[in-house]
């Protein structure tokens, strides 16, 4: 990928390509309980990202030899629809998708009481329907809401957001062009109540000082996203309660 700093990515007044300020998130909409068949589900729109997550389980482990004797097997599968990007993506899982499935699982597992369901699996299926940068973070945000919607006991929600450097300036929640043409991208997942970090990756270049600032910026973004997650779960809870009472 070329990493040429284009002046256009951020102007003199600090306004970004899509009109956002450096420390501003894209608009985010999260809805819980969107797939009838799933035990829990969520849908997120973050800018132009559209991601659907379904949770199945706790259920019997397939294949059986993967069974964990002392806890549930949590498996997240990150998958992009062929039409989710400009050039059609082969539906077969790419190396990138396999790596992301793994790091997303690692990001979410610390939040789940997997020891409550030994010998079972918890399958989290993530389908990226439209991608415009920062899908791993949006996927984690939505997956956590879906797990909560499934009624899985959790220590905390997981909120995720990237910070990075674009046109020499630190920014929050990078979109596709900013990620590709920018100087650095730092995705972070946070357990907001416990204040610990469960996903951290980076590419690009940051000095030690910039890294510390970017990390704090991303943590702040995660905290904002956490509020939106809570609202989505509250709305879902009220809807379910009303449906039961009727």
């Amino acid at each position: 990928m070329p990493r040429k700093t284009t002046k256009k990515l951020i102007d003199k007044k600090g306004v970004r390509v899509d009109g956002r300020k450096p420390n501003e998130l894209r608009s985010i909409m999260i809805k819980a309980g969107v797939i009838e068949n799933a035990d829990g589900s969520a849908y997120i729109e973050q800018g132009r990202n559209k991601i659907l997550v379904g949770v199945y389980g706790p259920r019997e482990v397939h294949p059986r030899h993967l069974t964990q004797l002392d806890r549930a097997l949590l498996r997240c599968r990150y998958h992009m629809a062929p039409f989710s990007v400009d050039e059609r993506k082969s539906p077969a899982p790419s190396r990138r998708e396999q790596e992301l499935s793994k790091v997303i699982t690692w990001a979410i597992e610390p939040s789940v009481f997997t020891d409550r369901f030994p010998r079972t699996s918890l399958d989290v299926f993530i389908e990226v329907l439209e991608a415009n940068g920062g899908t791993r973070c949006a996927a984690i945000t939505a997956a956590s809401v879906a797990l909560a919607d499934a009624g899985i006991p959790m220590r905390d929600l997981v909120a995720a957001c990237a910070a990075g450097k674009v046109g020499g300036q630190l920014v929050l929640d990078l979109m596709d062009v900013e990620d590709k043409m920018g100087d650095a991208d730092l995705p972070v997942a946070l357990l907001p109540s416990l204040n610990v970090i469960t996903l951290l990756q980076m590419d690009g270049e940051l000095s030690a000082d910039e890294f510390e600032k970017a990390l704090n910026l991303a943590i702040n973004g995660c905290q904002q996203i956490h509020m939106i997650q809570r609202e989505a779960l509250k709305t879902r809870h009220i809807a379910v309660k009303q449906a039961v009472e009727e």
């Binding site: 597992e109 730092l186 204040n195 951290l200 980076m202 590419d203």
Partner: peptide
């Protein structure tokens, strides 16, 4: 000595302080 890549692995977590210490 600038950072150019990071990967966190495993099911545990890090605090922000631990990350800066690790850097």
């Amino acid at each position: 000595e600038n950072i150019c890549a990071i990967q966190k692995g495993g099911v545990g977590y890090f605090t922000a302080e631990e990350i800066l210490e690790a850097a």
